[in-house]
């Protein structure tokens, strides 16, 4: 479904990604594992158009979307839940969720999706009227996830789902991502902790200093403790 070919990207003066080849198939959970600062976020940003790639191609269902604007890429079904959550701080929890379903659906379809997200995170319903800026870190992350799920995503790209969260909240977040995976949605998750993503991953890529150094089925790669140790530290 998603194909990335020879992707080169970076910021003014420095190249971060040196030619990435990666793919995600229908219904698959793909994890990009790598230590901090090795280009995981840059990869997701380049795929969803927040950063324009210097070279290479991004294909969605065979269609070249490399130069598309972020809003067009999101409308096509690649939905990116970025690092830092990026909520709308002066909007309520419900309003944030509704904005996740901005593109496409009618109001009745929107409220149906709202119902599904509330099922996954009952907590969001209780706090519906609260302003997003008053939420705690874990609550923000759940809202960001819920907002992403409001869209008609084909593929959800999640950047470090547990970054900065307490252990208990981290567990809750991964448990809910699990439910999302079971519903059949494809996932591309960037993470630095192999234990967190073990149950979510079908395939794993290892990212080091801007290049994918290893890839393989999750059961194989994630079981190789020596490799992961040497690599993630």
């Amino acid at each position: 479904m998603l194909e990335v070919k020879g992707l080169v990207a970076g910021y003014a003066g420095s190249e971060v990604l040196h030619g990435i080849d990666l793919e995600v198939n229908e219904g698959e959970g793909v994890i990009v594992l790598g230590p901090n600062g090795h280009g995981k976020s840059t990869l997701l940003r380049a795929v969803t158009g927040l950063l324009s790639p210097r070279a290479g191609q991004v294909l969605l269902d065979g269609k070249d979307i490399t130069r598309w604007r972020p809003d067009a890429i999101a409308a096509a079904g690649l939905v990116h839940i970025p690092q830092g959550d990026l909520l709308f701080p002066e909007m309520t929890v419900t309003e944030n969720l509704l904005m996740g379903a901005y593109h496409g659906p009618t109001w009745s379809e929107r409220s149906a999706r709202l119902g599904r997200v509330y099922e996954l995170f009952p907590w969001l319903k209780e706090r519906g009227g609260q302003l997003a800026r008053t939420l705690s870190g874990g609550e923000r992350r759940m809202l960001a996830l819920g907002r992403g799920l409001m869209s008609k995503a084909k593929l959800l790209l999640i950047d470090e789902p547990s970054l900065g969260l307490a252990p208990l909240t981290t567990q809750q977040i991964y448990a809910s991502i699990h439910k999302v995976k079971e519903s059949g949605l494809s996932l591309l998750i960037a993470d630095e902790n192999a234990n967190h993503v073990a149950g979510l991953a079908d395939r794993v890529y290892l990212l080091e200093t801007g290049s994918l150094v290893r890839q393989g089925p999750a059961d194989e790669l994630l079981r190789d403790k020596a490799l992961l140790e040497s690599y993630l530290g």
Partner: peptide
């Protein structure tokens, strides 16, 4: 309204708005 809310979304967090398929 949907478009009115989108205006607020864009004004509060432009990058997130574009990731929600809102044409900034």
């Amino acid at each position: 309204t949907r478009r009115g809310m989108a205006i607020r979304a864009v004004s509060q967090q432009q990058e997130a708005a574009s990731l929600m398929a809102i044409p900034v």
